[in-house]
Write a protein that binds this DNA or RNA. Structure first.
Lengths: 203, 203
DNA sequence: GTTTTCTGACTTGTATACATTATTTAACTC
DNA sequence: GAGTTAAATAATGTATACAAGTCAGAAAAC
């Protein structure tokens, strides 16, 4: 069997998404169907569908690439905090030993990687915890917001926040020691610090 | 100026949505583009867009009308609980006196209405509290799930749960007396009871 | 009788032409 | 020169034809 050629729609979706994420399409930019169609080499139809999809994902709003305001960011972090602190509580209660090992190794990986690797390992840390809420709706919600937050802090260079790893370690400890309330409130503080840092970078 | 004629897409969206909600398109039903196009009297293009939109809204999944499982329902209620108990806490802290009056009157309205009015008034109660989280993302998330939950419990006749109004009153009291933690945990229990009732109706 | 493969109908995906709406610009009035 | 309006232009919305893919049922093989 051959590689099934990706559909025009998928190509369009991935191309546009990529360009938004890596900054080629900056925040606020108006997306015009015919232009994109030419550029990507498909007709307008799949472009439209791709745009709808990205609209749903929150990366496009009324044909414009989103440019989240400080307020938007706060709202997203609030939502994340609600879910992730809940997830941390669940993790402290139910996470398997094996998973905890994985969690700890994501911290170690972050310590000895280059910038890109660190970013990835830190995302892994959060993802592992979020998984423990075992609720697909919550997981998807966090995922969606992470893309947008990432986009936002990516337009600026990726900075590494000083105390980040220490905080991850403390959270990991709390989970390992089966202290749900502690894990939850540590996560809350962690995300709060993250938000403030993100906002400070920008201005 | 005349009434601006609604776009084909809007007509398609509203028509299909309505039919899903009122049960004309039952859970699991396959939606075929050409059929809908003929039935509604527009071309396939706006039908597709309408379907995408409803897919995003969660009412359609892979061209089929959703039929949420018990597990899905539990997940949605969990997410709602997280947000609404947070909102209740916020309400107890910040809700204006004027709004609290509105809240109480939604309870009274529910007491002396017919079935349909009661359902509406009870939704109003929850909406008023959810508003107090002042976070558009959370508000939208709850909205989306409410449609689906409503759809689910609507296919069965609308039952009225015995203690529902008493619970609403207690929550309202807690908010009025500015007891955030109490309001929050009452809301949590309230939704838990609601879920169990909903699940019991069905089987 | 069961499984497999082929055929054809049905459905969705894509391109494109045309219609409608929104936006820009240019001219004109004051 | 500011503001208004009309025309031109561009962009999106809609219909439709055609392509590609999917699926069900009939025919064939075992």
């Amino acid at each position: 069997m051959e590689i099934t050629s990706r559909s025009a729609q998928l190509i369009a979706y991935e191309t546009i998404r990529e360009k938004i994420i890596n900054g080629a399409f900056p925040g606020g930019m108006k997306l015009v169907e015919v232009q994109l169609a030419e550029e990507i080499g498909v007709s307008r139809t799949p472009i439209r569908e791709a745009i709808r999809r990205l609209e749903q994902e929150g990366l496009i709003k009324r044909k414009k690439v989103i440019k989240p305001s400080e307020k938007d960011l706060r709202h997203m972090f609030q939502m994340r905090t609600l879910i992730e602190s809940h997830a941390a509580k669940m993790a402290a209660t139910y996470m398997s030993e094996k998973r905890i090992v994985q969690l700890r190794s994501s911290i170690h990986l972050a310590q000895r990687s280059n910038t890109e690797g660190t970013v990835k390992a830190n995302k892994e840390f959060h993802d592992l915890i979020v998984q423990e809420c075992r609720n697909p709706i919550m997981i998807e919600t966090v995922d969606k917001m992470q893309s947008i937050i990432y986009l936002f802090s990516k337009t600026v260079v990726v900075h590494e926040r000083p105390l980040l790893l220490e905080e991850h370690m403390k959270i990991c400890d709390a989970i390992e020691q089966r202290k749900p309330e502690l894990a939850s409130s540590l996560m809350e503080e962690h995300l709060k610090a993250d938000l403030e840092f993100t906002l400070n970078i920008v201005e």
